[in-house]
Design a binder for these strands. Structure first.
Length: 116
DNA sequence: TGTGTGACGGGCG
DNA sequence: TCGCCCGCCACAC
C-alpha cells in the first residue's frame, strides 16, 4: 500500500474541487453549493470555499468563476487584488455589477447537469 | 482532544 | 423583502 487512503481522502476532496472548477467553461460561473452537490457533499458548500482558499497554492484554478448562490463575488477579497476577480470575469464576457454577476441565472453552470 | 472559524445554503419570522 | 439563525465539515490553534 503506497499510501494511506484515509490521509489521501481529504486531499482528494480538494483535488476534486479543483477538477470541477477547472472544468468550468470560460464566460460561465457556478456556485459553491453546486460544486458541493456534484461532489456529493451537498450542504457542505463551506468546504468548497475552504478548498478554493487552498487553491491559491495551485495554478490553473479559475476560482473567480465560482461565486455564491446570489452571484456575488464574495471571494474577491481573498484574491491578490480586490478587482482581479471582477476583471477576469469581465475579460471573459461576464458582466459584473456591484460585485455581482449580471444574468447569473443565464451564466450559471451546473456541473451536475452540464458535466453529467 | 476540544473549541473556534469560515470564499455557503436553506429556513423562518 | 430583509435580516438572523442553524447546519455542515475540514482545518488551525
Amino acid at each position: 500500500m503506497p499510501k494511506t487512503e484515509a490521509t489521501d481522502k481529504k486531499t482528494n476532496f480538494f483535488q476534486d474541487v479543483y477538477e470541477v472548477v477547472k472544468l468550468i467553461p470560460p464566460g460561465r460561473v457556478t456556485s459553491y453549493g453546486a460544486i458541493a452537490a456534484y461532489l456529493g457533499a451537498k450542504g457542505s458548500a463551506r468546504m468548497v470555499g475552504w478548498a478554493l482558499i487552498a487553491s491559491h497554492a495551485q495554478q490553473g484554478i479559475p476560482a473567480y468563476r465560482v461565486v455564491n448562490r446570489n452571484g456575488m463575488l464574495t471571494g474577491k477579497q481573498h484574491f491578490e487584488a480586490f478587482d482581479a476577480m471582477q476583471a477576469h470575469l469581465e475579460s471573459e464576457g461576464v458582466q459584473v455589477k456591484d460585485d455581482k454577476v449580471v444574468d447569473f441565472d443565464k451564466l450559471f453552470w451546473d456541473p451536475a447537469k452540464e458535466l453529467l
